[in-house]
Design a protein around this nucleic acid. Structure first.
Lengths: 193, 193
DNA sequence: AGTATAAATGAGTAATAACTCAGTGAAGGA
DNA sequence: TCCTTCACTGAGTTATTACTCATTTATACT
């Protein structure tokens, strides 16, 4: 690769890195292109040479982030056997990426459909693991014979609820960490016979 | 009241009515003042004689709406005895006001704190009724000995989840109506011994 | 009837933020 | 070495939208 292309690549990386940082901190809707350009150390116009629109830039950032999350999640969830470890692993992971998930929870309804679908796939693959674990528990007679899909909506709905209302519940720190034990305990009581 | 004051009052009502309509349809964030003024049949500037800012107008509309909802909810919840009727009544009410609740669920994180607190009081008073009903059930030995507050977060979290993701689940109609039976059935299974 | 007052009007202002494009300078190729 | 190419620059454009204010119009008061 020649000098020119190298520089171009570096510029692109600087833009994407800056965009991701701003995005995770303040969300897509409140991030403006000038701030990203400044943070990346490039001219405002340069940003638009690399990404035609703010939307295209954010789509790139979001996609990268979702792919990275998907890979990590797959690893965590496939390592854990029983439901309680699965929940533990999942909530720990959410806790570690809480800023990102908080933004997603808050802004998701405002994103265009294609992006919403991609973000939803994330949850869908996690659901799969939980689904199979609960299904096995039902067959083994340790869990109630419940509507598993709806049961999982209760679980994911609750997690999202806490992400949404974080600011009203705690002043700082991690809401997931704060509520983790209680979520797991209550959920296990719900489904256990 | 003289002619002048009467006209002023009518103008005010026209503005508030138009604002409420737009607000419930498109949300506060996407509603613009010109559209409201047009719909109310007044000049754009007139709107600002009655409400200093867009924010002040929307605060008025939201407050009215929340008060009205609180009164209706109080009535519905106080009429229903057991938990299942309570849930039925609550979900029917949500279904009837689904457009409004959908907007609130979507936009809540973007509202200033004072408004969020007011909107939260709504949920808090509903929670009270459910709390007492479940508490009684536990004492009577028909429900498990669970963390009631967390249990209710599972319930309200799920309802909010459906409001948030409505567009991804159904093309049109009421998501609450569509999921009501299933929510109630699963929730009752959760807490029953 | 004539004057004061208050509400309503709507063209205009101001602030914001995404996006453009003529000009610049460094790298590549002959 | 000279010319071309291309990423980069940043002042400027455009679009949007909340908000203002000089002017108009209708009502109230004397």
């Amino acid at each position: 690769m020649n000098k020119r292309d190298l520089r171009k690549q570096e510029t692109n990386k600087a833009i994407v890195d800056a965009a991701r940082e701003e995005f995770v901190k303040n969300g897509f809707l409140e991030t403006n292109t000038k701030t990203v350009a400044d943070k990346a150390g490039v001219a405002h116009g340069t940003l638009f040479l690399h990404y035609k629109t703010k939307h295209a830039l954010m789509e790139k950032v979001l996609e990268d982030q979702l792919i990275s999350i998907d890979i990590q999640l797959e690893k965590i969830l496939s390592e854990n056997g029983d439901l309680e470890s699965l929940l533990n692993g999942y909530l720990d992971f959410m806790h570690e990426n809480e800023d990102f998930f908080e933004v997603i929870a808050r802004e998701m309804p405002h994103y265009p459909k294609e992006i919403r679908i991609k973000a939803y796939l994330n949850e869908a693959s996690a659901r799969d693991y939980f689904y199979r674990s609960i299904q096995k528990g039902i067959q083994d007679g340790i869990y109630k014979d419940i509507d598993i899909k709806m049961t999982l909506t209760f679980l994911f709905g609750t997690i999202n609820y806490f992400l949404h209302n974080k600011q009203s519940i705690i002043k700082s720190g991690s809401i997931i960490e704060y509520k983790k034990e209680s979520i797991i305990e209550t959920f296990m009581k719900f489904i256990s016979i």
